[in-house]
Computed example of a mutant assay.
Amino acid sequence: MSVIYVLLTISIIVAIIFFIAFIVAVRSGQFDDDYTPSVRILFEDELVKDNKSKSLNN
């Protein structure tokens, strides 16, 4: 029974460590996406052209 308490304590400590690492990564800007917004308009233009060509063919 004492093994369960030890494993539970260790797992909670590991979970807290990963949560703190995640919070530090978010605050430092690790997950900021600087590339996609600058090229998003290019992808939308291609989709609009594809939709127009499909509607003209029908």
Rank of each mutant, 00 (worst) to 15 (best):
L8M: 03
I4T: 11
T36E: 04
N58S: 06
S53A: 13
D45I: 09
D32N: 11
A25D: 03
I23V: 15
I16G: 05
S2T: 14
F31T: 09
K54C: 02
D32V: 09
N51Q: 12
S38K: 14
M1G: 14
S38V: 06
Y35P: 00
L47P: 00
S38T: 04
I16Y: 04
F19L: 14
A15D: 01
Q30C: 08
A21P: 02
S53L: 13
K52H: 07
F19R: 12
S2K: 15
I16H: 04
P37F: 06
S2I: 12
K52L: 13
I12W: 04
L56E: 11
F43S: 04
R27M: 08
S53T: 07
D45C: 04
I13Y: 10
V14W: 13
N51T: 07
L47D: 00
V39T: 08
S11R: 11
I4K: 15
V14I: 14
A25S: 09
G29L: 09
D45G: 08
I10Q: 13
T36C: 01
S28D: 00
M1E: 06
I12Q: 02
I16P: 02
K49D: 03
I20H: 00
A25Q: 07
F31G: 07
A21V: 08
S2P: 05
Y5G: 11
I4R: 15
I17E: 01
E44F: 05
L56Q: 12
D33Y: 12
S55D: 02
V14A: 15
F31V: 08
K49P: 01
F31M: 09
V48H: 05
